[in-house]
């Protein structure tokens, strides 16, 4: 139906968004790459000398780098496992014929809408504070010493906070997918007398495979960039215990004022995220054809 006229009109309509996104992608990225080759600090000499790969060399050989990569993997991996497994369970439970499903559903997905700084501070104080926090009181009830979360188990504390925000996301997506499972299919399986387990194994699980993949990929994109939860609870510490790659780059840039080094770290983060995004783009792209 597209005539030549509508085609050029369409181009005109799409042009602003394409142009803006092109700028938004290319300009900062090019500048980051450029900065990453300079000896450039916000304090000290104003001359920014070209130093090639040196920033990358220092960033990668800094022991903090390997620690931050490890922390990133631990954080992303743990939250993925908790949220996908827990989210599947929660979604299956909510999909059962229960009374007042709407209310239970709203309660279960609410944490996803809580802004990161609020989530982190509520958990840090009201729950994990070692003297007055609710967890300390529960430990006291059981006669065990309370855990000083942010001193002794800072990474576990951060994982709990982040998983609490993302498990509801997985629940929401998987539940929506479950509810789109054809009612006729459900009825047919029942009439055939399919036992619940094989019904689950052969019908439900395959149906969940795709949405679960989508959940994993989208969560990974966001989890690689976790920042606020660390910023307001541990500040990356104690030591480097909760410093992920994002936080390390932030620290180099806005705390150590090492523009060149931070830029090099930023490029490394971009490369890592791209590996994930290639998979996600493929997956969503397949959907476009359907």
């Amino acid at each position: 139906m597209a005539t030549k006229q509508t085609q050029s009109a369409a181009r005109l309509l799409a042009a602003p968004s394409i142009g803006l996104l092109l700028l938004w992608m290319i300009v900062p990225l090019a500048l980051t790459i450029y900065d990453s080759t300079l000896n450039y600090t916000l304090q000290g000499n104003p001359v920014h000398k070209f130093i090639g790969w040196t920033n990358y060399y220092y960033f990668i050989t800094d022991p903090a780098f390997l620690t931050s990569i490890w922390n990133t993997l631990v954080l992303v991996g743990s939250v993925l496992v908790i949220s996908v497994v827990g989210g599947t369970g929660m979604a299956l439970l909510l999909d059962q014929p229960i009374f007042g499903q709407g209310v239970a559903r709203v309660m279960a997905i609410s944490p996803f809408f809580i802004m990161a700084t609020v989530a982190a501070l509520v958990w840090k104080n009201l729950f994990m504070q070692p003297v007055f926090g609710l967890f300390a009181w529960i430990a006291h009830l059981f006669g065990v010493p309370p855990i000083d979360w942010f001193t002794n188990d800072p990474m576990i504390a951060v994982i709990i906070i982040v998983a609490w925000q993302w498990l509801p996301f997985a629940t929401l997506i998987l539940l929506t997918a479950l509810q789109s499972l054809d009612l006729e299919q459900k009825d047919a399986a029942q009439m055939d007398g399919a036992p619940p387990l094989s019904y689950f194994w052969y019908l439900v699980l395959p149906h969940l495979a795709r949405p679960a993949t989508v959940v994993i990929l989208i969560e990974t994109i966001f989890l690689l960039g976790i920042f606020a939860e660390i910023f307001v609870t541990t500040g990356g510490g104690p030591g480097l215990a909760t410093t992920n790659l994002t936080f390390l780059v932030f620290r180099s840039a806005l705390r150590d004022f090492d523009v060149g080094g931070a830029a090099a770290g930023g490029i490394i983060a971009v490369v890592l995220a791209n590996v994930v995004s290639i998979f996600l783009t493929r997956l969503v792209g397949k959907n476009l054809e359907g």
């Binding site: 597209a2 509508t6 085609q7 009109a9 369409a10 992608m25 980051t32 806005l254 930023g266 783009t281």
Partner: peptide
């Protein structure tokens, strides 16, 4: 409403810009 043969590519490219981690471009 007026898709061309490039529309799909453009949409996927737009999506890919969302995947650039913010920290990568924090400095500039």
């Amino acid at each position: 409403f007026a898709p061309t043969k490039n529309t799909k590519q453009i949409l996927l490219w737009m999506l890919s810009t969302k995947m650039m981690p913010a920290v990568g471009v924090l400095v500039p």
